[in-house]
Design a binder for these strands. Sequence first.
DNA 1: ATTGACCTTAGAGTTGACTCTAAGCTTATA
DNA 2: TATAAGCTTAGAGTCAACTCTAAGGTCAAT
Lengths: 142, 142
Amino acid sequence: MLKISELAVLTGLSAHTIRFYEKHGLIEASKRSDSGYRYYSDADVKRAEFVKSARNIGFSLDDIGVLLSIRLDKQSHSCQEVTDITQHKLDEVNARLAELQTMQQTLERLLESCCGGPENATHCSIIEALDGGDVTVARRAS
Amino acid sequence: MLKISELAVLTGLSAHTIRFYEKHGLIEASKRSDSGYRYYSDADVKRAEFVKSARNIGFSLDDIGVLLSIRLDKQSHSCQEVTDITQHKLDEVNARLAELQTMQQTLERLLESCCGGPENATHCSIIEALDGGDVTVARRAS
DNA sequence: ATTGACCTTAGAGTTGACTCTAAGCTTATA
DNA sequence: TATAAGCTTAGAGTCAACTCTAAGGTCAAT
């Protein structure tokens, strides 16, 4: 059984974050000492690592909650439920990627157009481009 | 001279957002009526459009503030100042793109590995992958 | 027995960019 | 003139995921 700081070292999450995740139902300590200290079993560690993996992929804490409930009772859930969540996250990631790629291209174009030198900005092509409004539009939806 | 709702239609920003930007020094109304209504000149409109262009590219409001001060007094600023800000934003965008691309690949790999069917999740390869922790790590720095 | 590291809690603060509310003027239309 | 649409302000609320604080209890080592 590990104490919270030991779980923190193991998972790379801070003790603060572990308590925060507990408050949100993501991580549990299967035992408490008489004085209230959290103690984590091997299964608790596995669960914490699951949470961390899911977080690393970009799942929201809400998503992770759903994934955990599936993990806890696999019999009652289908693969399709899991792929639905995953596909939805992939769609979000792809949408954000498209926005960022547009920004990237615009920024690169601007940088190519500007001398970047120590001369004053009276004829700076970046400022002019922003003034002209001829920059591509890409804003996050949500 | 335009009223705030007219500027809102023109720029696609909401009147709320325009006031919010004013509070942060980004947009100004060069006149106020006796009753306090904001009135925007052509120059004010240009400025608002500049702000919107910069925002669309992904610049933070703080960045936009700096860009505006350069725009207002081009003589006192160099092209290099402008490219520094732009390059820095491009670096951020590239960093985030790399993270998202890692997520994208991981999510695609997971989706390929799972049948996604109506069978129960007892052997779901996505759940297993998250359990095993064999997912790539990519978290935003800031 | 004392020090210091670690643990507990509830709850507040952070970030960035909005978004909304309430209460009250002003202006345009019928 | 009455009504509705639009404007004003200060300030609070929203989102997600932490991050930190304060005040105090616990534990291991000297």
